[in-house]
């Protein structure tokens, strides 16, 4: 498998990259790691005219913490996220998800920004970012905008990124005390795309009830989405297996899986229930720890 002819640039700074994206709008494709993009180029299912490789642009691959949020550069690799102890301490869901993506080599090179911008419905980050109510920072030559992850994933391989824009950062609000988060992924074999993935973040109030909650689902709709019906069922309620089962069932009812090699829709709906339940339980366990 050989890619079609393509041009390649490696801009030295963000400004240059954004200028190229604007000048070559519609023809340029951002290359950030490439483990999603290269296979498509080799299958010739994507034939952009020019690849804009972000590797030389400084300051896009860090993980930092402000008083309010965690900021992850778009070029941060899955490996970097997986191995960031500080991040895992506040948002263990990030380690759960990063550790299950692809295989070790893919984790070494694949980036969160690349994965989010690619928006494969079976990729893990989009559901996680919706569960934790992340924001996505988009830059273009004309400026910057920050959009919520919820609503960003429009459709299969389609996001709210405009052609001349680039994803530069992910911002995740710091969870309140007594929060817990977890990602549960069902896969056919190590390294496979998710059959179903469920992301959950729970915050307990002083009364022991669920004060805030986020649930995101992978691979069971045209785009990963926030399971708002499940969230509604959980918010304000006292956590427990029975409640989690009900909420998981609500998540399942909100899913729209398709039949494919990972299984028929009926199986996937059942697995949404199971994985959501497991994610909620794990998140609660962490909130109480």
């Amino acid at each position: 498998m050989i890619p079609a002819a393509v041009d390649y640039v490696r801009p030295a700074d963000l400004g240059e990259a954004l200028r190229i994206l604007k000048e070559r709008e519609g023809e340029a494709k951002v290359l950030s790691g490439g483990y999603s993009l290269l296979p498509l180029l080799k299958l010739r299912l994507a034939q952009p005219a020019i690849l804009v490789d972000l590797q030389a642009i400084g300051g896009l691959d860090g993980i930092s913490r402000t008083d309010d949020d965690i900021r992850i550069g778009g070029r941060a690799t899955h490996r970097r996220i997986l191995e960031d102890e500080g991040l895992a301490a506040v948002l263990p869901i990030m380690r759960d998800a990063a550790g299950g993506i692809g295989d070790p080599q893919i984790r070494n090179w694949g980036t969160i920004g690349g994965s989010v911008a690619h928006a494969d419905p079976s990729a893990d980050w989009p559901a996680v970012l919706q569960a934790v109510r992340a924001s996505i920072v988009l830059r273009s030559a004309d400026g910057e905008r920050v959009v919520p992850a919820r609503g960003f994933f429009i459709d299969t391989f389609q996001t709210g990124i405009e052609p001349a824009e680039m994803l530069t950062e992910i911002r995740i609000p710091l969870p309140a005390p007594k929060s817990g988060s977890a990602y549960q992924k069902l896969e056919r074999r190590a390294g496979d795309f998710s059959t179903v993935g469920a992301a959950a973040l729970l915050t307990l109030g002083a009364d022991g009830r669920i004060a805030e909650v986020g649930v995101g689902l992978t691979a069971v709709a045209d785009a990963p989405f926030a399971a708002t019906h499940a969230e509604d069922a959980l918010r304000g309620a006292r956590p427990g297996d029975e409640l989690f089962r009900e909420a998981a069932a609500a998540a399942s009812r909100q899913s729209r899986p398709a039949d494919d090699a990972h299984g028929p829709a009926e199986y996937k709906r059942a697995m949404v229930t199971e994985m959501t339940f497991r994610a909620l339980r794990a998140a609660l366990g962490r909130a109480l720890a």
């Binding site: 890619p3 390649y8 490439g34 483990y35 290269l38 080799k42 080599q105």
Partner: peptide, 19 residues
């Protein structure tokens, strides 16, 4: 196709030479 690129293992069939 695994090789090391800057000390990290990489799949060299999924990386362009120019990268």
């Amino acid at each position: 196709c695994t090789v090391h690129v800057n000390g990290m293992s990489a799949k060299s069939c999924t990386m362009l030479a120019v990268q």
